[in-house]
Design a protein around this nucleic acid. Structure first.
Lengths: 191, 191
DNA sequence: GTCTATAAGATGATAGAC
DNA sequence: GTCTATCATCTTATAGAC
């Protein structure tokens, strides 16, 4: 089932708006203007805003999952995998000061319909599970050293990167994200 | 200049709504219902929503500043100061799954009027400056050990705590915040 | 699939009486 | 200070023609 150009254009515009402004700060009218169609046409493809929200999280989660797969395929050692993961989020931030869609939706969590909330929770769990695997690998290899369980380290690392995105944009200093990410990896490297 | 009961009630209700739902997901109507007055009365005290937003950030920043002062007065060593700072944000999260007002406003950053943006940036800078002092102190004392400059460590630590709040709420697992915070402090402690 | 037209309610905000 | 009344605009969403 290939996705139509219109649906892709709607989702691209919506994703940009969610990542920069948040789920509650854009309307079908904003989308209609950007895509060049009427709001009724958007409702044809996404009857309710929550349908669009859910579709955005699913598409984004799939894209990030593929990016994680590429990292796993292209680099092998744990520290480099962490750096590549951090660079993935940095590329999002560099693209018009966007925030990770998962992090932005997490910030709007209380206002999301339950099905969308669940997909956001899933996104977080997926990423933390993958990061926990990298943490365990690093400990096994002797390239990473950290306190407690791998899952705890993964959760703290993921939250730290998400928070670093918000803070960097809030200081109008995107370089700050890179410094935070590098510092975190540096603290994890075994000495 | 003492603040009237009405103004305090409006700000309390608004702060709770911003911290749980975000700046763009509450209205003067929501406030009016909670406070038990009409929207026109709120406009008398805060003509524009941005006036209210600005006042909220200033009041919150002052309260957090006083809390930091209390920490400095009550405990002396750097690791305990970091733990108390993390506990401060945890108490926010435990109070109805609220997010730090500064973090929430940072997530709404692109939609805020410029003066409010500036106050959010200030809030972040204030907290990072204080944390950088604690980091430097810890390194001097020999209680903390970390890579690079104290300001970098402080920035990463602050962002990590803010991110941990969003992630914990997004997983409906507030205990996750505490685990992340403790892990971060543990990684900073000199061995 | 996209359009026009329209609905029903929400939103930030103001004027002017009390 | 708080109220009623009102405004212009925005928002999500639907019905039905093309």
């Amino acid at each position: 089932m290939e996705t139509s150009q219109t649906v892709t254009a709607i989702m691209d515009a919506a994703q940009e708006l969610v990542q920069t402004r948040g789920y509650n700060a854009f309307s079908y009218r904003d989308l209609a203007e950007r895509v060049g169609i009427r709001t009724a046409s958007i409702h044809y493809h996404f009857p309710a805003k929550s349908d669009l929200g859910g579709a955005l999280v699913r598409r984004y989660a799939a894209a990030v999952g593929e990016a994680r797969d590429r990292i796993e395929h292209e680099v092998q050692d744990a520290p480099t995998r962490l750096r590549r993961y951090a660079a993935l989020l940095e590329s999002v931030l560099r693209d018009g000061s966007r925030i990770c869609l998962g992090g932005m939706m997490a910030s709007d969590f209380a206002t999301l319909p339950e099905p969308v909330q669940h997909e956001v929770t899933q996104f977080i769990a997926d990423n933390e599970r993958w990061l926990a695997g990298v943490m365990e690998q690093g400990r096994r290899e002797g390239t990473l050293a950290f306190a407690g369980e791998a899952a705890t380290a993964a959760g703290a690392f993921f939250g730290a990167l998400e928070g670093a995105m918000f803070v960097a944009r809030g200081c109008d200093d995107l370089e700050r994200y890179r410094r935070s990410a590098e510092w975190l990896v540096e603290m994890l490297i075994a000495r």
